Simulated assay, not measured.
Amino acid sequence: MALSIRRDVVRDDPTSPRLWTVLTSGPFARRWIGRPAPTAPGLTLSTERPTLLYFRTRGCTVCDLVDMQVAQACHQASVDLVIIDRYAKSDDPADRAIYDQPGNLLDKGGVINEQYAVGVYPTFVLVNPEHRIVLKDVGAKAKPEVFKAYLEEQFRLAQ
Rank of each mutant, 00 (worst) to 15 (best):
L3W: 14
Q69L: 14
I112Y: 01
L157D: 10
E130C: 08
Q159R: 15
L151I: 03
P38E: 08
N113F: 14
F147W: 14
K89W: 07
A2Y: 05
V10G: 00
D91W: 05
D64V: 05
A140S: 13
D12T: 13
D95F: 05
Y87W: 13
E153Q: 15
V127F: 05
T21S: 10
F55Y: 08
F55L: 04
D12P: 00
L105R: 10
P41C: 11
Y116R: 04
H75I: 01
S90F: 10
A149P: 00
Y116M: 07
Q115C: 02
R86K: 14
P17H: 05
G103A: 13
P38T: 06
V79C: 11
I84Q: 10
R86G: 08
P144Y: 01
L53E: 01
D13C: 09
I33N: 08
L126G: 05
R35T: 14
W32P: 01
L65C: 01
L151G: 01
M1N: 07
P144W: 08
G109C: 10
V118K: 08
G119S: 06
L106W: 09
A40V: 05
V125H: 06
E152K: 14
F28Y: 15
D107W: 11
V146R: 14
V22R: 06
T39W: 09
A94Q: 14
P122A: 07
L126S: 11
R7P: 00
V111E: 13
L19V: 15
A71R: 15
G139H: 11
H131T: 04
G42P: 10
V120D: 00
L3M: 03
A29P: 03
E48H: 14
T57E: 12
G139C: 09
T21A: 12
V22Y: 04
K108F: 01
A97T: 06
L105P: 03
I5N: 06
K89E: 12
L65Y: 08
E145C: 01
K143D: 03
P14R: 03
G139T: 06
I133T: 06
P14H: 04
V70M: 03
I98S: 06
L23D: 05
V118W: 04
P36Q: 11
L157R: 15
A37R: 07
Y150A: 07
T15Q: 10
A29D: 02
E130L: 11
R58P: 00
T51F: 07
L23K: 13
R35H: 12
A149R: 06
D92N: 15
S46A: 08
Q69G: 03
E152Y: 03
D80N: 14
D91T: 12
A140I: 12
L53R: 04
D100G: 13
R7Y: 11
L19E: 09
P93H: 12
Q76T: 12
R31D: 09
A73K: 03
C63Q: 00
L135I: 10
V22W: 03
D67H: 14
T123S: 11
Q115T: 02
F147T: 02
K143R: 15
R49Y: 01
D64C: 03
L105K: 12
G34H: 09
E48M: 04
C63W: 10
S16K: 10
